[in-house]
Design a protein around this nucleic acid. Structure first.
Lengths: 223, 223
DNA sequence: CATTATAAATGAGTCGTAATCATTTTTATG
DNA sequence: CATAAAAATGATTACGACTCATTTATAATG
């Protein structure tokens, strides 16, 4: 029964993580007591330290899991065949709604970034989460919906920065999700549409078409 | 000499605040020792508690002063007679540069917002700081440079949200101030011009072609 | 199934630090 | 100079994160 043993350990780790998430959320990082987390996970205080080296690592695990789940949710929230604009809209809505719903955990994220006095390591799971946006944007550029010289990282900062601030604004005002925030944000993306001038049907464009056709031909010959 | 007495007390408070700013910046909030702050301010540990009720209130005072100074600096950085766009540019530059220079203290700000477990009280001095932006925007609307139905609070979230995220990105990449970030942000503000440039018929055709090709590719990959 | 070895769990005890408070020192007042 | 009030001190307390000697559960072996 080496398998059930492993499962029991995993269940325990999960119980600790769940308890920690709850307590951190309710009391904040400083207010959270390791004793309380242990009590809710139904283990002794020392046991927590068998799974996580210290309070900060436990915090990191909680935050890490949160963003991993968020990534899953984001991918699920995006319609596969939709237009780039539609997908951005879906991602923005999902993101804003999540930030509002789990405001407490989101706030705690900044705490997990701090290691000792040094600020801002990138958390791996946030990097992963951001890839969802990057993939949509890249597709937008490939599809010529956005001009090719678009600096994705700058737009990403606009996208996430705006939504984060908007979420804070809404929560502080005790308001719910506001669709106008999304509409407003999406309108900014019109900025990145390729210039409406005559280079639309130029030689560069046709080479892109030929490249795509070549890829299709290559795929066809595989069958 | 009731006046010199008062001055001595103020000097002491200032010494404690300066010491706290330094130590919080160097070691982070958790790493900062009240004993170290007292030592650097050249007072006994108990004395600190005569001026600030506890560590958190001291932190709040440090953050509060930082944003008060920032407000002063912002107002000084803006040219009185300049155009609205020029002023926004100046404010954005000043803000981004400050966020980069004092990244540590800025990060600590989120910590000061937390009171017990409850997140996000507005810090009064940040509210004050934000007014600088609001005033410029209001002037822009009054001068008909921005359309009247512009929701200032949403644009404010774009402005500060983007700059905050950009600053983090730059600092993590160990890059300095990047003017292209400002230019990029300022271009977004064209959106709010009353004479909308967005109703020009643009080259939708090419993106439609590319989308069609992408759909074909996607279908092919399924086999 | 009994025995031993190994892994996991326990919680009383240690240790560091924020905060307190009885005592001392300084300052203001007449 | 005497006295009261204010300010400052630092030894002491309180509390919570973390440790570790001991106990309990699980796996391995003949």
């Amino acid at each position: 029964m080496a398998d059930t043993q492993r499962q029991r350990l995993e269940a325990r780790e999960e119980a600790i993580l769940a308890a920690a998430t709850a307590v951190f959320g309710e009391s904040g990082v400083d207010g959270a007591r390791m004793a309380e987390i242990a009590r809710r996970a139904d283990v002794a205080e020392g046991t927590v330290y068998l799974y996580y080296k210290n309070k900060h690592e436990l915090l990191e695990a909680v935050v890490d899991r949160f963003w991993r789940e968020l990534t899953k949710g984001a991918i699920a929230a995006i319609s596969e065949g939709a237009t780039v604009n539609q997908q951005l809209h879906e991602l923005a809505s999902y993101h804003l709604q999540s930030l509002i719903d789990d405001f407490k955990i989101v706030e705690i994220t900044s705490r997990a970034r701090m290691r000792n006095g040094e600020p801002g390591r990138q958390l791996p799971q946030i990097r992963e989460y951001v890839r969802v946006f990057d993939a949509i944007m890249q597709r937008g550029i490939d599809l010529r919906e956005f001009s090719a010289d678009t600096a994705i990282w700058q737009i990403r900062d606009v996208f996430y920065g705006t939504l984060e601030h908007s979420a804070r604004t809404l929560v502080l005002r005790k308001q719910d999700f506001d669709p106008s925030v999304i509409d407003h944000l999406m309108r900014l993306f019109d900025q990145y549409a390729p210039t409406s001038k005559s280079d639309v049907t130029s030689g560069l464009e046709s080479s892109e078409i030929m490249q795509a056709l070549a890829r299709i031909e290559a795929k066809l010959s595989q069958h």
